[in-house]
Amino acid sequence: MQLFPCPFCGLREETEFHFAAEAGKARPEPAGQVSDDGWAKYLYFQDSPKGRSREIWVHLACGEFFVMTRDTVTHEVTGSEALSGRSR
C-alpha cells in the first residue's frame, strides 16, 4: 500500500488515487489541423520511463488533479504539486 501526497489533502493511501497521464503533454490545437499521426502521438504514445517519472494523478476523494514526481522502480515519491491553473 503506497502513500501518495495529495497537495490538498496530504498523505493518503494509493487506492484513493487514479493515474491520469504522463505530465507535460499539451493537447495539440486546433485539433482539426493536426495530422492523423500527430493526433495518435498525442493520444496514445508516451515515454513510460523506468525511474523518475512526472505524472498527472487525480485524488478521487477531492477531485483535484495534480502533478506527482516519483520513481517507477523504487516507488519513492519525490514531489507533488497542484496544477498551476491551466496547462496551456
Binding site: 503506497q2 487514479h18 493515474f19 517519472s53 517507477t72 523504487t74
Partner: peptide, 13 residues
Amino acid sequence: DRVPSYGQRGNPP
C-alpha cells in the same frame, strides 16, 4: 496494479 510501475513486486491493495 493501479500504479504504473517497473517494480517486480506485489502490493497489498
